[in-house]
Computed example of a mutant assay.
Amino acid sequence: MALTTLIELLERLDEVHNQMLELAAEKKQTIMDNKVDGLIDILNRESKLMKLIGQLEEQRIAAAYTVLQGVGIRSNLNLNLTELSRLIFDPEDKARLLHIQQKLSGTLHRLKEANELNQKLIEQSLTFIDYSLDLLVGRPNQDITYHHPSDKGNGVNRSGIFDARG
């Protein structure tokens, strides 16, 4: 019974991570479309899912401990699923546990890749924004340092589109 609860929790974790994967795809398109409001909405939905994942993880840890107690291990070991599966002797139960482990692992791997791609897209967007600002405002030829106002010879010359001295 405890193993069934653990497997159900792992399946629920996989479902929620798949929802995160769907949000990652939405986020990718939102980033490419430069929709800031849409991105904020997605981040709020991700935050709710992350809270749910945290709760499910706590339940998973408790269920794994119950499985350990069921096989006679009284200590609170922090075993991964592969190690835990070695303690399961029923071939069907072991197969179910290993199947959901592989399924969840694949989902997590795809989610990691999607998040890395979105991070790169955001970095590229920020680089483009920085470049665009450089074109509009211009970069000074020297480092910006403090100069006494009466020292007019060392002023910073910006030759961008917006020239405040006009």
Rank of each mutant, 00 (worst) to 15 (best):
L43D: 10
V71A: 11
I61E: 13
L126Q: 07
G106E: 10
D134N: 07
S125F: 01
N34P: 07
L126M: 10
G70L: 04
L81Y: 12
L77H: 03
E123R: 06
L111P: 04
N34M: 08
D163P: 05
Q29S: 12
E113N: 09
H109C: 07
G160T: 00
D33S: 05
L52I: 04
T82G: 08
L43H: 11
K94R: 10
D163S: 12
E11Q: 08
G155N: 15
N115S: 12
R86D: 15
L136T: 15
Q59Y: 01
F162N: 13
N154G: 00
R86A: 10
K103N: 12
D134R: 14
A25Q: 15
A62E: 14
L104D: 07
A114T: 00
T107N: 08
A114I: 00
Q124S: 06
L97M: 09
I122W: 04
L117D: 02
Q59R: 02
M32L: 15
N34F: 02
R158T: 08
L111H: 07
M1R: 12
I144L: 01
I61T: 04
T145K: 14
V137L: 07
R96S: 12
I53W: 03
H99E: 15
S105R: 13
K112A: 09
N34W: 06
N76H: 12
